[in-house]
Design a binder for these strands. Sequence first.
DNA 1: GGCGATACTGAACGCCCGGTCATTTACTGA
DNA 2: TCAGTAAATGACCGGGCGTTCAGTATCGCC
Lengths: 218, 218
Amino acid sequence: MSTAERRAREKAQRRREILDAARKEFFEHGFSRPTMDDVAARAEVSKGTIYLYFASKEEILAHLLLEGLDLLLSHMEAALAATLSATAEAALRALANAYLDFFQSHPSYFRLIMAFDRGRFGESIPPELFQQVLDESLRGLTLVARTIEAGQASGEFRVDDAWQAAGSVWAALNGVLVLMAHPLRQQMLKSDLQTMFQATMDLVLSGLRAGTVDPADG
Amino acid sequence: MSTAERRAREKAQRRREILDAARKEFFEHGFSRPTMDDVAARAEVSKGTIYLYFASKEEILAHLLLEGLDLLLSHMEAALAATLSATAEAALRALANAYLDFFQSHPSYFRLIMAFDRGRFGESIPPELFQQVLDESLRGLTLVARTIEAGQASGEFRVDDAWQAAGSVWAALNGVLVLMAHPLRQQMLKSDLQTMFQATMDLVLSGLRAGTVDPADG
DNA sequence: GGCGATACTGAACGCCCGGTCATTTACTGA
DNA sequence: TCAGTAAATGACCGGGCGTTCAGTATCGCC
């Protein structure tokens, strides 16, 4: 009996080793360049072995993507948990900073998430994985939307549709990260990512406070 | 003498034909899938001929990219020209709508611009073309920055740094387009691109009017 | 009419790579 | 000890594709 258990443990371990090797390869050399042979060499197994654990190259990437989303979500949830009793604005700032942190600490995961968003996979990965990714994605947006709803309730934010506002906030922050990812942009705008990110957050928060209804009035 | 001129005309014409064929192929099937054989077949020339007019596949894409940027800039400039004597807010809305129009009328050019932004080329294309792309890109941002400066001057907008604000605005609008490009997103947020785009623009404008300095005060 | 120049052609080159499967190796329980 | 099984191997397959270049066709001028 214990033999079977050990076997299962070893199998899981091997799988993890392959995933670790793939992560290193992909994060070091981009998501296209590395070949299955590269990953195999790094994992110190033969190429055939990889296919005993994963159905395809894309499936490996899909698993890494899920890792990244999990990490991002846990960052965001931790940030929210730490500001439970604060104002909605503070909570929203905490969420945004968690996203910025994630971008800076795990740029490759960020790039992978963006690649998925662009439809890099979508075909050719198991629908069940695909659904998981969508669910995680939705959970993230939900955190933002709920925070904005709290701000609506407390009167901090004057917006009609919290989900729409959440979409705008997410789009704006994401937009800054994508835009400023390029060093050339930082040159063009003569400011760095941090500064631009905070400025955008300030702008958006100012908009949320002022509300988009009845611009001239309070 | 006229012979040489005709020759030159014909050469330019052939070049245009190849570019037209490449545009169709790339816009129909994505920027990677089509092969040089596909482009050649579509242009009704042999593959070798293409290399008499372009140095590489990437260079062709770079020229298409420039076309796209030109088109976008002319849209934006036309929009600005039509609102010369209006408020800064109206002008900024006109710019934004021009961008939205561009996205909707020429989605493939938009995707190409985004691909460049991601660094899809950057290596392997002539530095002179690369520089041209950066210049155009900067011109676009300049239009936004100047408009915001006008709003600063007129007192419509309360921001310290017009360029920074321009970056935020650009990032936010770009972010919405990228975010909502996916049909799944529209489902998640239960609203369409148009609505989200306008909502984001409203939010951002509200922020510009309110200013990001001294939040509680006017 | 023929010669040089210019334009064009497409077979061939060189290289890359994801995925498969017959075979070998390692282990285990009787 | 050995047969049965699970795991691992890596040569091989089938395909793809950007780029080159030796050879061919076309044109215009003397």
